[in-house]
Amino acid sequence: MKIKKLFSTSIVCFVLIICSSSAKLTEHTTSKPIPAIKEAMYFPPFNSDTWETKSIASLGWHQDKVQDLLDYLQTKNSRSFMILQNGRVVMENYFGGHTSRTPWYWASTGKTLTSTVTGIAEQEGFLNTNNKVSVYIGTGWTSEPLAKENLIICKNLLTMTSGLDDSMGNDVSSAHLQYKADAGTRWAYHNVYVKLQDVVAAATGQSWSSYFNTKLRDKIGMTGAWIQSGNNSVYWSNTRSMARFGLMALNKGNWSGTQVINPQYFQDATSTSQTLNLSYGYLWWLNGKASYHLPQTQFQFNGKLIPSAPDDLFCALGKNDQKIYVVPSKKLVIIRMGKSADNMNFARSDFDEVLWQKINSVIN
């Protein structure tokens, strides 16, 4: 009888121990937050009009502020506007008969295409951006004394520090490329950057368009072409092609696992490249810096390029308000194409600041 009672007591104790341990284990495991599933970056397929989308509501954005943003864009002569978040389309709007297939000019936003392809040519060993420009296209490409011309390296063209006179207009024939200061001592927005296209062509033994198409355009599924306009070659494409390039930029030169451009070069391109204009990289504009310069002036403005935009934003800005905004912290790419919002301008304008106030009302 005593043995039976002892056995029963042992069974009860064993059960109590097991239950207590299970309760502690349950308490321990359920107290930890369940980690969120990280969403993969989306890259749209080639030759497809179907892109993955996200709703305003799914992101917790403010649907009630969207119409105000669209009204502002339409009032300011926009033709297209697009927001990608983590690669997926959140907003895609067209105005004035413009469609997803309508080509439009990039203007100076295309400078970033030139910057990127120059970097690709360097990583493939065709050129060195620390070499003199004349190494690739010969001497006499400016009207400067040879000693002054030989100071200009490819990186000076990438950073707008050639020292050439920016008051001579957009003509980049040698007669119009005149000495103003030694290379590297003066920042001035100048069309001479297009000489990098000649450098790439000479270094690779291919036409600029052919090398660009093979090494960049076709690798990320862009469409479009370089169209001659006066002395300049201007890129034209639809809005989604511009968005593709912005998405590659968001991913530091990577497209769906393929490293199109060396990530270190791209990091350098989207960082302050010299001390004269803190808000300028390799033909990219940078936000969040202590000061900036604008085209057509030598005046230094204190403060951020676009005060209402995130500090980590970098962007491509083109004549008449062509825009590619990239915000890594928010995984955003924002595109605006159209006519000038106000008066004709060459890069940043008051439109950027007000537009970002409207965007913030939606996304914050």
Rank of each mutant, 00 (worst) to 15 (best):
G96W: 01
S31C: 09
D71W: 02
K76V: 08
L69F: 07
E52W: 07
D71E: 11
K54Y: 07
P44W: 08
K54D: 06
L59P: 04
N86T: 10
E27V: 11
L84E: 13
L69W: 01
Q67N: 13
G87L: 08
I34R: 14
W106F: 14
L69C: 03
H98Y: 06
D68Y: 04
K76E: 08
T30S: 12
N77Q: 09
V89M: 04
E92D: 12
L69E: 00
T112S: 11
L73K: 07
L84M: 05
Q67T: 09
K76P: 05
T102V: 03
L70H: 02
A107Q: 13
T102K: 01
A107T: 04
W104Q: 11
T29Y: 15
A107K: 01
V90I: 06
W104I: 04
I34N: 07
Y105P: 08
R88P: 00
M91G: 01
K38Y: 09
N86V: 02
L73D: 02
V66A: 11
D71C: 05
L73Q: 03
K38C: 14
Q85R: 04
I37A: 08
W104E: 05
S48K: 13
P33A: 14
K76N: 11
T75Y: 08
M82V: 03
E92Y: 02
I83R: 01
T53L: 15
R79Q: 12
P35G: 08
R88V: 08
N47I: 13
P45A: 13
V66C: 06
F43P: 03
V89N: 03
L69D: 06
T29V: 13
M82F: 05
Y105R: 13
Q67A: 12
N47D: 14
A36C: 11
D64W: 02
M82K: 09
T102E: 02
W51D: 06
E27R: 03
Q85V: 15
K65R: 15
Q74K: 10
Y72E: 02
L59I: 11
S80I: 00
G110E: 01
D71S: 05
Q74E: 10
T29H: 15
G110S: 04
S78V: 02
T26Q: 11
A36H: 11
D68A: 15
G96L: 09
S108W: 07
E39D: 14
